[in-house]
């Protein structure tokens, strides 16, 4: 389904040590990263999201500091400066980390995802248990031509999310998953 985003599995695992389990001897069972990365544009999307959120907080603090009398100014500007630094660092680092970790794969039997950074999660939902497949595009995602696909099962806690997919790829994926799950019998519970 995705041509440009496949089979880069070996390049992304290094920095975080993801995929390294157990004591590391030969023969230890472990999970490999799912095959597909998300779209490269997602890095820009994540980055803008962090900058916008952090920027809004900093802006509020700065505006308050300008409006309020002098005594409070330092106590507003100091956290604003700290927050600005954290935002910039996060905006540079986190999207790259996320891009390395976020993977997805669809086989004939199941959907796999890997998400997170500090806490990494592999999730799997078998086709026979999938209930809904949604694709969602927030305002920022629309700007970058991206979409987020969410796959839910009958469990309250079993949803899989694949963020930052190319818009057309997401549409194809939703279509394909819907077809497959409709063809699979069972009441999914």
């Amino acid at each position: 389904m995705s041509e440009s985003e496949t089979n880069e599995s070996e390049t992304g695992a290094g920095v975080t040590g993801a995929g390294r389990f157990g004591t590391g001897d030969g023969g230890t069972l472990r999970l490999r990263p799912p095959a597909h990365r998300v779209n490269r544009t997602a890095v820009t999307w994540w980055r803008s999201r962090i900058l916008l959120t952090g920027g809004a907080v900093v802006a509020v603090l700065v505006v308050l500091a300008l409006v309020l009398p002098g005594g409070a100014r330092f106590w507003l500007l100091a956290p604003a400066a700290g927050f600005a630094v954290v935002t910039v660092v996060a905006a540079v680092g986190m999207p790259l980390w996320w891009y390395r970790v976020h993977r997805w794969e669809v086989t004939g039997d199941a959907v796999y995802t890997r998400t997170g950074a500090l806490w990494q999660e592999w999730r799997v939902a078998p086709m026979s248990r999938i209930q809904t497949v949604d694709s969602e595009r927030g305002p920022l995602e629309q700007v970058f031509g991206l979409a987020t696909v969410t796959v839910t099962t009958a469990s309250a806690k079993g949803a899989l999310t694949i963020p930052g997919l190319d818009r057309d790829l997401a549409a194809d994926l939703v279509h394909e998953l819907t077809e497959t799950t409709q063809a699979t019998p069972g009441d999914a519970t």
Binding site: T16, L31, L118, W119, Q120, E121, W122, R123, V124, A125, P126, R129, T153, A154, S155, G158, L160, A188, T189
Partner: peptide, 9 residues
């Protein structure tokens, strides 16, 4: 109906 494997750093 699904599995999750989770690891912190």
């Amino acid at each position: 109906i699904g599995l999750t494997a989770r690891q912190s750093l």
